[in-house]
């Protein structure tokens, strides 16, 4: 696998499902790939004391997040037999039901992509300086805590 440059994983607003299907379609020319695995994070309308989350506003130390994400990708390429990997995360407001996180891993066979995907998703959630502010129906907010 060739060394890749550090990419910007951030997109302003929700991730459009159409861009995901386009991303899948873009791989039809890469015929050494035999398996894809995809994780999609969606904003959940959590109810807390009768107050419902209507959106999450994401901010980040983007430069640091992109650097660490690059390291996570490089480590996954070194550990598993993978062909390519695409990662996007939202910044700014993402409404309930919309997508905020997209991880797309491809490889020659299913076993490597099945193993790599959860590891990459977990590491991104643990290590990237991204901060989610949960905004409620009544315009109050709380800071998201990852489980």
């Amino acid at each position: 696998m060739k060394k890749e440059e550090i990419k910007n994983i951030f997109r302003v607003g929700a991730i459009d499902p159409i861009s995901i299907s386009k991303s899948i379609a873009n791989h039809q020319s890469k015929t050494t790939i035999g398996a894809h695995s995809i994780f999609l994070g969606q904003v959940r309308a959590d109810a807390i004391d009768g107050n419902e989350v209507t959106a999450i506003e994401y901010t980040a130390q983007s430069e640091m997040a992109n650097k660490i994400c690059h390291e996570i990708k490089e480590a996954a390429f070194a550990q598993y037999k993978l062909s390519c990997m695409h990662i996007y995360h939202s910044l700014g407001i993402v409404k309930k039901g919309e997508l905020c996180f997209f991880v797309f891993v491809s490889g020659p066979h299913r076993k490597s992509v099945f193993k790599a995907l959860p590891q990459i998703v977990d590491e991104i959630k643990d290590k990237l300086p991204i901060f989610g502010k949960e905004i409620f129906k009544d315009a109050s907010h709380q800071w998201k805590i990852n489980q």
Binding site: A60, A65, H89, V121, I124, K125, K127, I130, G132
Partner: peptide
């Protein structure tokens, strides 16, 4: 220098 609270991406 950055002050970073707990991360909550995803």
């Amino acid at each position: 220098v950055d002050l970073l609270p707990p991360f909550s991406g995803g």
